[in-house]
Each structure stands twice: as structure tokens, then as C-alpha cells.
Computed example of a mutant assay.
Amino acid sequence: MRLRACGLFGTASILVGALALMGSGAQTHYIAFGTALCLGGALLVWVAITSRRIGRIGWLAITALTLAGLFLSMLVVREDVCCMFGYHRGLGYPWGWLDSYATADTMAAIDAMRSDPAALETSVDWLKVVLDGLFWWHVAVLVVVPAMQVGRRFQRR
């Protein structure tokens, strides 16, 4: 049952990743998201086809790396000044999921907001949290599964 779930989830990941790549418009966060999902999904399909086991330690490592990636990605800041005097700031990678937004009447007021972003009200975009979590989960799979397979080869010798 677990192997079927890995195969189905891997196939779904490849399809979603391919859609993201096709609709990327050469935007780097779409390309990173789509690539991670396609590669991670392919690895999950390989795990299912070859009947490999990831194991509890592997799943714990994947979970820990996913959470670490999700929270460390908040070090990535995207700022946009748009719509004449609107300011948007997003934290997270590949999608900015902790958002701040404000408007002002002058560019000087926008510059003052940019100099003190902690004063802005923040909101969480939960869809982007899920998408970021999915991205980091696939990145963790790409790190942990090969490491587990190499570790098992050394144990056999």
C-alpha cells in the first residue's frame, strides 16, 4: 500500500511540476518549484517501482528538512513597489507566504515604509505555505532518499 501511495503521489507531483514549468514564463520561482516537484516525483515513482523502503528514520529526516527549509526560506525577501505608491514585501521561497502590503500618497512615504518593514502589518497566505511546504518536502526527498540508499549499500559491505 505504501509503495502504491509513493507511486501515485510521485506521478501527481510530476504532473503538477510539469504544469508549473509550462506556465513558468521564465520566472525563477516557478522553474524551481516545477523542477523540484518533477525530480522528487520521479524519485518517488522509482522508489515505488523498485520496491525500495525509505524507513522511519528517512521519513523523520524528510520531515525535519522540510520544516527547516520552510522556516529558513523566510530569510528570502521579495519587495515590490507597484501601482504608483503600493509596497509589497513577501518572505519565503519559492513563494512569499508571509506578506506585508501598504499604500501611501508619495514615494517618500513608501521609502519610509521600506526602511522599517517591521512596522507593517503581516498576513499569512496559507495556500503559499502549502506550496512552499510541498516544494521543500520534495527537496528533502531528493536529499534523503539517495543518502539512505547509499547508506544501505555501505551497511551491506
Rank of each mutant, 00 (worst) to 15 (best):
I14T: 06
I14Y: 02
L15Q: 00
L15E: 03
L15F: 12
A18N: 03
A18Q: 07
A18V: 13
A18P: 01
G23E: 08
S24V: 01
G25S: 08
T28M: 12
H29I: 09
H29D: 10
Y30K: 05
I31F: 06
I31M: 11
I31Y: 07
A32V: 14
F33S: 03
F33W: 05
T35D: 03
T35P: 00
A36K: 01
A36E: 05
A36I: 06
L37K: 01
L37Q: 08
L39S: 09
A42F: 07
V45W: 01
V45P: 03
W46M: 06
W46T: 05
W46I: 05
W46R: 13
W46Y: 12
A48V: 04
A48C: 07
T50I: 04
T50S: 09
T50A: 13
S51F: 06
R52F: 06
R53E: 15
R53W: 10
I54D: 04
G55W: 10
G55P: 09
G55E: 09
G55V: 10
R56Q: 15
R56A: 14
W59A: 12
L60D: 11
A61D: 10
A61T: 13
A61R: 09
A61Q: 07
I62R: 07
L65F: 14
L67S: 00
L67A: 13
G69E: 04
L70P: 09
F71S: 11
F71N: 09
L72R: 08
L72T: 14
S73D: 13
L75T: 13
L75M: 11
V76C: 00
V76G: 00
V77A: 08
V77T: 12
R78D: 15
R78L: 08
E79I: 07
E79Y: 05
D80L: 14
D80C: 07
V81R: 12
M84G: 07
F85T: 15
Y87E: 03
R89N: 09
G90F: 05
L91K: 06
L91I: 02
L91Y: 13
G92E: 06
G92S: 06
P94L: 04
P94Y: 06
P94G: 02
G96V: 00
G96R: 02
S100L: 05
Y101T: 11
Y101S: 12
A102F: 06
T103D: 14
T103I: 13
D105R: 12
M107N: 09
A108T: 14
A108I: 10
A109H: 09
A109L: 12
I110F: 07
D111N: 10
A112D: 15
M113W: 06
R114K: 13
P117K: 07
L120N: 02
L120P: 04
L120T: 04
T122R: 15
T122H: 14
T122D: 05
S123E: 15
S123K: 11
D125L: 03
L127P: 02
L127F: 08
V129R: 01
L131H: 00
L131G: 00
G133M: 03
L134H: 04
W137P: 00
W137V: 08
W137C: 11
W137F: 15
H138P: 02
V141Q: 03
L142D: 08
L142E: 11
V144K: 02
V145I: 15
V145Y: 10
P146Q: 06
A147R: 02
A147S: 11
M148K: 11
M148Q: 13
Q149P: 02
Q149V: 13
